[in-house]
Structure formats: structure tokens, C-alpha cells
Write a protein that binds this DNA or RNA. Sequence first.
RNA 1: GGGCCCGUAGCUCAGCUCGGUAGAGCGGCGGGCUUUUAACCCGUAGGUCCCGGGUUCAAAUCCCGGCGGGCCCGCCA
Length: 514
Amino acid sequence: MSIKHRFWSFIELGIDPYLTEYRYNVTESLAKIREKYSYLKNGEESQDKHSIAGRIMGIRRHGKIAFMVLDDGTAEIQLVFRYDILGDEKWKIVELLNIGDIIGVFGRPMRTLRGELSILVEDFKVLSITWRDYPEKWHGIADAEKRYRLRYLDIMLNKKVRSAIVNMYRIEKAFRDFLDAKGFIEIHTPKLQPVYGGALARPFITKMYALNRDVYLSIAPETYLKRSVVANLFKVYEIAVCFRNEDIDAQHYPEFVQIEIYQAFADWNDMMKLVEDMVAYAVKSVYGDYKVEVDKNGDKLVLDFTPPWRRISLEDAIEMFGGIKVKGKNYEELLEIAKQLGVEISDPRKGKLLEKIFEKVAQPKIAQPTYITLFPRDISPLARPYRENPEYAERFEIYIDGLEIGNGYSELNNPIVQYYFFAKEEELRLKSREKFGEVEYHPMDKDFIRALEYGMPPTAGVGIGIYRFMMVLSGLSSIKDVIPYIIVEQENFKTVAEENPDILKYYVEKLKLE
RNA sequence: GGGCCCGUAGCUCAGCUCGGUAGAGCGGCGGGCUUUUAACCCGUAGGUCCCGGGUUCAAAUCCCGGCGGGCCCGCCA
């Protein structure tokens, strides 16, 4: 690059973007200012003075007046820079500012003649600069690879992504508030476990040097939260990161967050009530209403979280949405139905066939929050068999906008039966391996069974996928869009210091780094 | 694990079918402009066309291999 870097222009004006200012006294957020001064009429100026700080997101220059857009993380506002107010010296700095620079601003709220609430700038400080050009303002960052590599830019520029991430925090907080008011406590269960369990999935295996052994990354907090119930912590939950060594697609990612809740002396019906109340509470406190309008790439969908939610049994749902009778059918008949539907299936469990048929014909049609109940017992090794018919489990799943969001049940508290189910799982694994290849199964966990042997009360539990829930609420179709940062392969590129040895030399000398 | 698609300037993209001097808009830089909302006007710089190999007089373009990324199917939430 032969042209002088604008960094040197700042230095010439006596501004070092890292050495001149070390802090800025912010007195008000832009969200508050927007609220407080909404009364201003066109052309009206307030005499109040505020200090704000943030990133310049847009610039419109008109000679001796310039308009910029400032984002302070709570909202955006237009800044009005005027030569007659700022004077010659400061105007030179205004001319150097680029989109992406970070400034602190002192000024007065006003509304322009065109009706834009603004800050009339009386003074400002350069707090940091950008060394890289920002993406085009209209399309922003659109290339999927760039979005994930430069995720901070995607979060900064893509409003849908940013509000999903901010609202995820608010939803989690509302869940905690709701549960706290009901006397629940949150427990941190181990992420490094000697036996994995609580779900059916392939685990990550890592080396623990302290004990010179392999350990598993937690696939679910379930068995430890149930131990906590045994410990007389009768109302527990955790917002837990879970790791599952499976493939990535639009609905799955190897690390994800779910909230798991366990309540003693309760059954699945109590848990469905708790969940719909909690979710409705959270949605209302974050979005202002039980009904949320979601923009799915231009298509509008109004989700209604008003409790109670619809409850349909798995087999009824297959009949209702798919027009297929499955009740009382045997394994061979169900296999034939699956084949007709084009469902590839290699699993000896009848329940797995039903689940697959449901996923094919019913799941995509469930838009509003719905409980699908009475899952087959043979695919629910941690759930309590249905009191009226042990072919089923007292288990429900939550579906919203065609996505599976959660899973809950009356927890199996019988250590004898739990032992039997785990033993069956091992058997299933060995049997299936010959016939179908590897299937996911739940490993024997005798330590967990021993906990049950000390006595666990009747208990209901649930797990709700936080990322999936946020996908649904924000209308984002890929789970990666609501995960703050995902893994990407390292890439070769040059840093600014590598490309500008003169600037590197400047700082090394200035800060006496050698 | 299987299939399909994408990779060109800082960003968004065109050019690729039918091989023949590397393009536009935005952004950057320089100039003009005191009320704009993707401001506008004039000028200007900016490229390893993802990488490697092959075919050809000639490759961004055709072929092969690789890398990076996306989507779908199978499996997991």
C-alpha cells in the first residue's frame, strides 16, 4: 500500500487511538435516550447534555455538516456533527472518522427537520479505530463462510442474529427467575464424567491426566440432577452445555445448551404444566406478549404460547397429521408403513419405527407449541412406564414450528427396573451391531442405579433445548445462527501489524517494548 | 458415511454454457457540498479469479486432485 495509512493522520492531529484515551464517562444509554426524548418535535432541541459512547455504523457527509449512526449496544442514534459548533481542529478529526471507529460523544438530544431523533455533537473523543473496512451497509456480511469466520461482524451487523443472542440471555434469565420463585436451585453437574448417560448419543472422549484415564464429556446432566434429587435437593435444574459427538446440520451442533429441570413429588402432567407456565412467562417477559410474531425469511408466523398447550399422543398425531393408522400394529406392519413412506430404518425397536413415522408425517405440521405424549417405552430407558399401559412411557416431547424443542417424563425411580432397562440397552447394542451396525444406546450406569437404591421420590423432569427454542423465536433456520461462536478451520491471512511494519515499529518504540 | 452446490476487489455480485486484455455497485483514498436516512456529484487506487496439476497457441472459464464453506439424506436434541 503506497498511500499513507489514516492512522498517521490521527497521529498528526495528536490522537493516538490507544494512548490518548483510556476510558470514557458514559452517562446514558441510547435506549434510555430514545425513550426519554421521544417527545421532541421536528426541529426541537433539548438543553440536556449526555455522554454516550459506541461504534460508528454509518456516515453521511455533507461538507460542513455530517450525520453518523452510533450504536452503543442498546440502540442506535443519529449523530449530527456541525463545523460551526465543533470548530476547525475537531472538524479535521470528523473528516478522518470511518465506519467501525469507536467514539465517545458529548451532546444534546434533538430531532432533525426530517424527524430523526439525534444527538447534536458538542464534543467527542476517538476511543479506538478500525483497521479493516467494514462490509457493505446494504447487504452486510452475506457469505456464510465469512459470517461464521467473522462472527463478531455477523452479530454486530445482522440484527436478527444479535437480537437472538440478546434475547437468549433474557429467556434464560426469565427461566431462572421463574424457577427461583418456585424454590428451585441450580446445580452445576460435571462436564467430565466417568460414564456418560442421560441421553442416547455418541460422546466426546478426552484424557484426564490427573487420574490417568479417559473421561467423557457430558452428553446430558440428567443422571447427576437425579442424584441431586436423591440428595434431598427436591427441586433442581441446570442450564447446561451438553456435548454430543454427532454430525452438524441445521438442527444439530456438537455442543449445545439445554435447561434440565427435576421436581420431586411430581409426575409428567405436573411437569407439562410447569413447562408451559415457565415458557409462557419467559416469552411474555422478553417479547411483551404470549403471542410472538416470527419472521421466517419473509413468511410471518404467529406463535401462541398461551397455556395450556395442546396435548396429542404420538400415535394420535400420526393418525391426525398423516392419516395413517398405527395403533395395535406389530413390528412388521410398522416396518412396511415406514418403507411406504420412504423412511430408511435399521433398528430392532418397534418404538423407533413409530418415532420415525411420526417425524416423517406429523412433526413438520406442528407449528403451535404442542406436547406429543405417550412415547413408546422401548426407546425411553430413563422414563417411568405409563401407569395404564406399560408399552408406553409417561413421556412427552415439545414441538414448536416443526422442531423438537424439549423432552420430559415421569422419571423412572425404580432401581430394579432401571437396572433391567440398562441391561436391555446393552443387549440391544450387541444384537443390533450384528444386524444393523452401531445404534445409540444407554450404557449401564451402576453408580447411578445405586443412587436410586437409596430412594428417589416420584419425580418429573424435562430438558428444553435453548438454541432450538431461540431458532424458533427468532425465525432463524440454522442452529449455528443462534450459537454465538461455532468452530471454523484456521485460515491464513495477514494482520495489520504484519502489513504495516512502520506502525508496528511506532508502537514498539513508543511503548518501549524492546 | 452418502449426494448436491458454492469459492472472482475490503463487501455484495456479474463474467464461466460458447476459452481470447479482469468488470459493476458499495466501501477506501482525493476533491465539492450546513439537514441527510443505502445522501449526492467529480476523480482515483485496489485482483494469487481458493490452491495444485492437466488440456490448449491461449484457462477465472474446460478436465483431474486438494483445501475451505453451505445445503440435503443417514445418526444424535
